[in-house]
């Protein structure tokens, strides 16, 4: 059932204008409603900020939104896969820190980028694989397995270096500092990587057998197994994908900051989970969209930018994100209760 919802997402997004039959609409497209809510909130935030500040919706500002949150977007794509299977991955922040500092130290010792970048991605994959195997073959709860991944990644990051390491490699500097401009808008290669990750993630999720299996496993693992789907491989794979995204985010963040730092990404896993939930993915699994997670990242980034503009305490970001998270969970709860009743 979730799989059919998935194919209607894109068409229903354009058909949202059909008013009047809201009741029919909400019951038919219950699973895209949270994502619609996220889009509405994003538009309201942007419009409100433009009216309040007058100079918010500039090309510069919007481009910075993508640039500053590129690593978060990459992580959110991987996390979406995991959460749709009803799992959770707490390790993403420290995997990002580890691959970032590991890559930076390899660059510093003169290893060429053609080796370093695959090594960064593969070390993310290795931690993801460890978590996936623990979850699938040893029946460890995802929370605990990825907690081990969190400790492991953070500890390994400190083993590599306790200080930040500057990166001088021209390829990486190019990734971080090049700006393709179009009028007022610009985009960096890291932003392109983030958008490509979202596109690839969305395509895999909606147009491959693997993606459908992910939805099926999240909807009901038992049913998926009875249908003859390869549940074990899928569940391991989602953690591997999340690890891969962690490695990629490490690359993006290292390019963005021009250095690796072992304390990067502390608490990022919570931001990522919040962003994915705000984007409309249900934590109970089976429903969610990669594109929704992208919207969630933009909501998060916009709140951050608005708070910067207001010159308010940065701590308000997390209070507001926490409140939004609560709002979305309650909305999701209502939707799930509603569709359970109608079943």
């Amino acid at each position: 059932m979730s799989a059919t919802d998935a194919t209607t997402t894109t068409s229903s997004a354009s058909g949202a204008g059909a008013k009047g039959m809201i009741g029919t609409f909400t019951s038919r497209y219950a699973s895209v409603l949270p994502t619609f809510a996220a889009i509405t909130i994003l538009i309201a935030l942007l419009a409100g900020a433009e009216i309040y500040f007058g100079n918010f919706l500039t090309g510069r500002n919007m481009s910075a939104l993508l640039l500053d949150n590129a690593y978060l977007m990459v992580l959110a794509v991987g996390m979406t896969f995991v959460i749709v299977t009803a799992g959770i991955d707490l390790s993403v922040g420290s995997v990002m820190a580890f691959t970032g500092i590991f890559g930076a130290s390899l660059f510093a010792s003169g290893v060429p980028f053609v080796i370093v970048i695959p090594v960064m991605l593969l070390s993310g994959v290795a931690i993801g694989l460890l978590i996936g195997v623990l979850v699938q073959y040893f029946n460890v709860q995802p929370f605990i397995a990825s907690l081990a991944g969190l400790f492991l990644g953070r500890g390994l990051a400190y083993v590599v270096s306790l200080q930040s390491i500057r990166v001088e490699d021209p390829v990486l500097l190019w990734l971080g500092s090049t700006r393709f401009t179009l009028g007022d808008f610009y985009i960096a290669p890291t932003g392109v990587i983030a958008l490509l990750t979202v596109i690839v993630g969305a395509l895999v999720m909606h147009f491959t057998r693997f993606g459908r299996t992910v939805y099926a496993v999240g909807g009901s693992e038992q049913s998926a197994r009875l249908m003859g789907l390869n549940v074990a491989r899928t569940k391991v794979m989602v953690y591997v994908i999340s690890g891969l995204c962690g490695g990629l985010a490490g690359l993006v963040l290292t390019a963005y900051t021009g250095s690796g730092y072992p304390r990067n990404g502390i608490g990022t896993e919570l931001d990522v989970i919040a962003v994915v939930v705000i984007g409309g993915t249900l934590l109970s699994g089976g429903r969610g969209y990669v594109l929704g997670s992208m919207i969630g990242v933009f909501v998060f980034g916009t709140i951050n930018t608005i708070i910067n503009f207001m010159g308010a305490e940065q701590s308000w970001t997390h209070i507001i994100v926490g409140a939004l998270l609560l709002l979305f969970i309650v909305v999701q709860r209502a939707i799930v209760a509603r569709s359970d009743r109608s079943r």
Binding site: D271, A274, V277, L283, S315, I319, V321, A323, L325
Partner: peptide, 14 residues
């Protein structure tokens, strides 16, 4: 996990 995550995020801000 999620219910307490809300406070985990917002609590430090408070």
């Amino acid at each position: 996990i999620i219910a307490t995550l809300v406070l985990m995020l917002a609590g430090r801000g408070v």
